[in-house]
Amino acid sequence: MTLQTELLFDPLFLTPFLTGLPYALLLPLLGAYLRLKDEWLAALALAQTAAAGALVVLALAWPPAVGGLLGALVAAAGKHGAEGLAPALRGAAYALLLLFGWGVAVLLVANLPVAERLGHALLDGQLYFTGTAELLTALAVLAVAILGVAFLSRALLTAHFFPDHFRARGRSASRAHLLFDLLVAAALGFATMSVGVMAAFALVFVPPFLAFHRAGSWRRGLVYAMGCGLGGYVAAFALALLLDQPFGAVLSLVLAALALLGVLRASAGRSGA
C-alpha cells in the first residue's frame, strides 16, 4: 500500500469529490428523521433496492440512475404499505426488502456481464466514476430535499411526539409521511448511484446516531449530524485516494470508527460522572 498524495490535488478527482459533498450533507439530515421514526433500517433496504433497480435497467439499456430511482421508489411504496403493521413486523418488512434487493443485485452481477462493472461500483462505492451530470443531479437533489425537509419537519415531529394531534383535528399525518418517504427514496436512489450502497447507508445511520447522543437540541442535532457527515466524507475521500482503496469501504470504516469513539466517550462520561 503506497501513499499517493499527488492524487489529492488531481483535477480528475475534483468532480467526484464535489458530487459526494451534497449527499454527505443531505443523507445525515434525512437520517435524523429516519432515526426519530425508528426507520433507519429502511434506508439500507432502499439503498440496496436502488442498486438492484439500476442493475435491472442496465439489462434493458436504460440509464442506471433511472433504475436506481425506480428501485428506491418501489421500495418506498413497500415501506409505506408496511406502516400499518406493528413495529416488529415493520422491521421484518425492511429486512426482507433488503434481502430481496441484495439477492437480485448479486445474481445480476454474477450472470450479466454488462452489470458486473456497475455492480462492483455500487457495492464497493467507487465515487470516482461520477461526472458533471451526477454533480448537477446531486446539487438539485440537495436543494429539493432541503426545501422538502424544511416544509415537512414540523409535521413529522408533531406526528411523532403528539400521535393523535392530526387525527383530533380531522386531519392525517400520512401525507407528510408519504412525501418524506418519497424524498428519502429519491435521495437514496441518486446517492446510491454515486457513493454506493453501504456508504449511503453509513451516511444515513452514523451521523444521526452520534448527534442524538451528543446534541443539546433538535436543531443543533441536525447541524451536528450534517457536520459529522461532511467531516467523515472529506476524511474518507482523502484516505481512499491516498491509500488507493475503495471509497465506500473507507467511508463506512471512518464513520464506524467515529461511532465507536462516540460510544466510548459517552461511556467514559457516564462512569466518570
Binding site: F212, R214, W218, G221
Partner: peptide
C-alpha cells in the same frame, strides 16, 4: 430517551 429535543422545541410544535 435518546432524542435531542428540548422543552422549548416541544412547545413550539403546537
Amino acid at each position: 430517551d435518546g432524542v435531542p429535543l428540548t422543552g422549548r422545541e416541544l412547545l413550539a410544535l403546537t
